[in-house]
């Protein structure tokens, strides 16, 4: 155990927290401010991941790709692709009430996963895409991680500031009005469906960017990364725990849950070897228990949504 190792681990955790924070911010736009139950986060994460991977990776036979475009293009494309796919989905599905939307988005995420697995000419199929560049990837272990963290942190900060500004603007108040009382908002002349679609598309674009950041960090992407447990439900838990409707809450939730998820394994490692295999499941249990406790004792999350003027009523 030395400090350098600990620092390296902390930097790695911070990078993943940053990526999850982007996902949580995206979900916060959809659920926290607009009340759209998106249970298909993994799908938009995957679209962003593959879009950037295909555009920036080295050439390979048997699949699309190898354009070796600059990273920035890949990252912009990941957001555009996720948004472009979210648009028709939203156009069709957002007419559903929240629980039907949840079921539809689960299905859509599964369709996206199966398309990625089966359409080898596009995505490399189950073998995935490799040879994806990583910015500052040629540096040594520590500096390269720190450099990547800087990029991720900057993007999270920009996303946070932009979302925060948007939510404080009249747009944000309108979104909350639609979320809390759709009929009243419609009666005031707000275009409920168009606004919901906006939120859905913006949120999905952020999720796509998170996917791109994840694959460039690992220099590879395979369909195994699109696991609903780790790419959908964990993010829901982060947002609920951190406080939906509060951007700082979303980021804090990402940090708390990822730290519990990662660090709890170090604790279970101290258990005797006879139960080592069983102990690995403890962290899944811990996450579930945390969610239960939060929902029971603090349903509004650690940092609740700030209500201007009126007392919290939800």
């Amino acid at each position: 155990m030395d400090l350098l190792g600990l620092a390296n681990y902390a930097v790695f955790m911070a990078i993943l927290i940053g990526i999850y924070a982007l996902l949580a911010l995206g979900l916060n736009i959809q659920w926290g401010f607009t009340g759209l139950f998106n249970a298909g986060i993994a799908g938009f994460f995957a679209i962003g991941a593959y879009a950037s991977a295909i555009l920036t990776s080295l050439p390979a036979s048997g699949r699309l790709g190898g354009y070796e475009l600059p990273l920035v293009v890949g990252w912009l494309a990941s957001m555009v692709a996720a948004a472009a796919i979210a648009w028709p989905i939203g156009k069709i599905c957002l007419r559903f009430r929240s629980d039907y939307l949840a079921i539809a988005t689960i299905g859509i995420a599964e369709i996206i996963r199966l398309v990625i697995r089966t359409e080898g000419w596009l995505t490399g199929g189950v073998r995935g895409v490799t040879g994806i560049p990583r910015p500052f990837g040629d540096l040594d272990y520590m500096p390269s991680q720190v450099a990547y963290l800087a990029i991720v942190a900057t993007l999270v900060l920009i996303a946070y500031l932009l979302v925060e500004r948007q939510v404080k603007a009249p747009w944000g108040r309108m979104m909350r009005a639609i979320r809390d009382n759709e009929l009243a908002a419609a009666a005031m002349g707000k275009q409920v469906e168009a606004r919901r679609l906006q939120a859905f598309v913006f949120g999905s674009a952020l999720m796509g960017l998170a996917g791109a950041l994840f694959v460039h960090f690992n220099r590879s992407v395979t369909p195994e990364a699109i696991d609903p447990m780790i790419a959908t439900f964990l993010i829901w838990i982060m947002l609920i725990l951190g406080g939906s409707g509060n951007n700082r809450g979303a980021i804090l939730g990402a940090a708390v849950i990822w730290i519990i998820w990662s660090v709890s394994e170090l604790l279970t490692d101290r258990l005797p070897t006879e139960v080592a295999v069983q102990a690995k499941y403890a962290r899944v249990f811990i996450i579930g228990l945390t969610l239960q406790l939060v929902l029971r004792f603090r349903p509004e999350g650690i940092l609740p949504e700030r209500q201007a003027g009126s007392p919290p009523h939800r």
Binding site: N8, Y9, F12, M13, L16, F214, F217, N218, S220, V221, T222, E224, A225, D227, I230, A231, W261, S262, E265, L266
Partner: peptide, 12 residues
């Protein structure tokens, strides 16, 4: 069996 956990466990 997924990259998220594998990189995490490798880093640890």
């Amino acid at each position: 069996c997924n990259p998220q956990n594998a990189t995490d466990v490798a880093t640890k």
